[in-house]
């Protein structure tokens, strides 16, 4: 490719953009709307994923100890627990600490639980976290087998259901995004096809005169990249403004943890912009090939 050709391609691309203004605007709007929907789904997925992680990370095993154990027996149990594969951390909670926690949570300043109950009814316990929360049920089975542990609690039943739900949410959101990408490609390709159809005579002539396929493609690709990126940019501006205001309002209203990490968000926005440009090129590619077959 000669440097002269690059200038020619750019000039042709922008001439065509301004000459077919209405179709250009239609294409940019189509891209913007597609990317907006896609971006909305991506943000939703990321937040759903973060929420799922948050819920899952809360899952832990509480192993209650017999009351008549000696200090060394308690330490031995800790070693046994740590030896189980998949265990991330083991944290001892003494009966006093457990009562204090309970007091903090439910008693407040009005009741003194210890006085009301007369004695501390709570046992010593270990809080066990798994490296992968999904392994909690299997780990719990092994914990139960250890001597000196009389009860194991990890939210049996509820946890299994939680994992089912989180897996479902993840799969559904991925499928949803893949479908949206396909819809966006189709929609954008159709709009670009209109623009190319309007210039089919020109393409036919170029082919008969003897220009190569790539010589014809380049201006269309440049147009596609430009329209895709422009549409993507519009979508991102709307999305960022909308999500920004959502964060500032939600903060006061809910305990739900919204993803606010600027690193993650800017990655999402940049990916969407690239996605817009790629969709523009992809749409052009799909629509153009038919007309090049002369």
């Amino acid at each position: 490719m000669r440097p002269g050709s690059i200038i020619y391609f750019l000039r042709e691309a922008f001439k065509s953009l301004s000459r077919n203004r209405l179709l250009s605007i239609a294409t940019i709007s189509t891209v913007a709307i597609s990317i907006l929907i896609l971006g909305f789904a991506v943000l939703l997925t990321i937040n759903a994923g973060a929420l799922m992680n948050y819920l899952e990370s809360d899952v832990e095993i509480v192993a209650f100890l017999d009351n008549d154990l000696t200090k060394s027996q308690i330490t031995d149990i800790k070693q046994d627990l740590t030896a189980i594969t998949g265990v991330k951390s083991v944290n001892f909670v003494s009966r006093e600490r457990a009562l204090a926690k309970l007091q903090e949570k439910y008693g407040g300043n009005e009741y003194n639980l210890k006085e009301t109950l007369g004695k501390n009814p709570l046992p010593n316990s270990y809080e066990i976290k798994a490296e992968d929360p999904h392994n909690v049920p299997q780990i719990a089975v092994q914990v139960k087998k250890i001597d000196g542990i009389y009860k194991v609690n990890y939210g049996q039943g509820v946890v299994e259901r939680l994992f089912k739900v989180t897996r479902w949410v993840r799969v559904v959101s991925m499928v949803f995004i893949v479908l949206l990408v396909f819809a966006a490609v189709f929609l954008i390709a159709t709009t670009i096809r209109l623009a190319i159809f309007a210039r089919r005579k020109e393409i036919y002539l170029m082919k008969l005169i003897g220009s190569t396929d790539w010589f014809i493609r380049w201006p269309f690709f440049i147009e596609g990249i430009f329209m895709g990126a422009a549409g993507g940019l519009i979508a991102i501006l709307i999305l960022a403004a909308g999500y920004g205001s959502l964060i500032s309002h939600m903060d006061a209203l809910f305990f739900l943890p919204l993803v606010t990490n600027p690193g993650i968000l800017s990655n999402v926005y940049i990916s969407l912009l690239v996605c817009g440009a790629v969709l523009g090129v992809l749409g052009t590619w799909i629509s153009l090939n038919k007309f090049l077959d002369v």
Binding site: K201, Y204, L205, K207, L208, I209, G210, S211, T212
Partner: peptide, 16 residues
């Protein structure tokens, strides 16, 4: 094909 076509000039009924 492009090289072939560069050696041929085409005149159309509807001018194109």
């Amino acid at each position: 094909v492009p090289r072939l076509r560069r050696n041929i000039g085409i005149v159309f009924q509807d001018f194109k």
